[in-house]
């Protein structure tokens, strides 16, 4: 479960001065549900998700993730979250197995459990052919699989994806989409950000449209259609943003 409550994030930028990247964002995302945060570049998606993953601290407001407050118990939040984005790269000089092992240990997974889980994940994601290959020698698709295994190694109850398919080819993107669905089906709480409308339409149970740091509209796709008129999500998005 994720409950964002009036999240605000301000920071100082040399060129732009004081910037409010997230401005009073509130929403709820339930287990077994995929919540899509839809917005253009610079809308505040990444900052919101980084706050939920406790990589950034909110200036105001708070969020409760998996029952833990992001401002009060950030380490417990991180223990319950799997965070994947295009910015979360792999250690090139570690092998696929070493990479996943490292994060399992950092999450405090007990050694025998860790080895069992790694074997299971590597089998499920068909990674055994390259388990001992260095990450910098892997293809984009292979790297994505290692990242997925890294986020799942501690069996988190909440998954946060920040534009996970950005820059990926069709096959690698499909792996990610399939993985998000599997997470939802296994009862995890899933939030993901994108600016690709088709992806949001395919995957999301609820959609939040974010622009200029504010959450302008929120609901299921049918609720949004009902409220704003057009059938197409792209048209709904434009209508909301321009309004």
């Amino acid at each position: 479960m994720i409950e964002a409550q009036q999240l605000v994030k301000r920071f100082h930028d040399k060129k732009r001065g004081a910037v409010c990247a997230v401005d009073g964002v509130s929403f709820t995302c339930r287990p077994g549900q995929v919540y899509g945060l839809l917005g253009a570049n610079g809308a505040g998606k990444t900052t919101t998700l980084r706050i939920l993953a406790t990589i950034l601290a909110p200036t105001e407001g708070t969020a409760v993730v998996a029952g833990y407050d992001v401002t009060k118990e950030p380490r417990k939040v991180r223990s319950s979250v799997g965070f994947l984005s295009t910015a979360t790269a792999l250690y090139g000089r570690l092998s696929a197995r070493e990479m996943v092992e490292y994060f399992g240990r950092l999450h405090g997974v007990e050694e025998t459990v860790l080895q069992r889980r790694i074997d299971e994940l590597f089998g499920r994601l068909e990674m055994n052919d390259f388990r001992d290959r260095r990450c910098d020698k892997l293809s984009t698709g292979m790297k994505q699989k290692v990242s997925i295994a890294r986020t799942l190694v501690h069996d988190p109850v909440v998954m946060i994806f920040d534009e996970p398919t950005l820059g990926l080819d069709v096959m690698a993107a499909r792996t990610i989409v399939r993985f998000i669905r599997e997470c939802r089906d296994s009862g995890k709480t899933v939030i993901f950000s994108t600016h690709v409308m088709s992806e949001a339409e395919k995957l999301c149970d609820r959609i939040g449209i974010i622009h200029g740091g504010k959450l302008l509209a929120e609901g299921t796709l049918s609720e949004l259609r009902e409220r704003y008129g057009p059938r197409d999500l792209e048209d709904i998005f434009v209508k909301v943003v321009e309004a």
Binding site: A53, I55, R75, K76, R78, S79, V81, F83, S85, A87, T88, A89, L90, Y91, F103, L106, H107, G108, R150
Partner: peptide, 8 residues
């Protein structure tokens, strides 16, 4: 960012 996601 990857390492900052860990609970350490």
């Amino acid at each position: 960012e990857t390492i900052l996601c860990s609970p350490v």
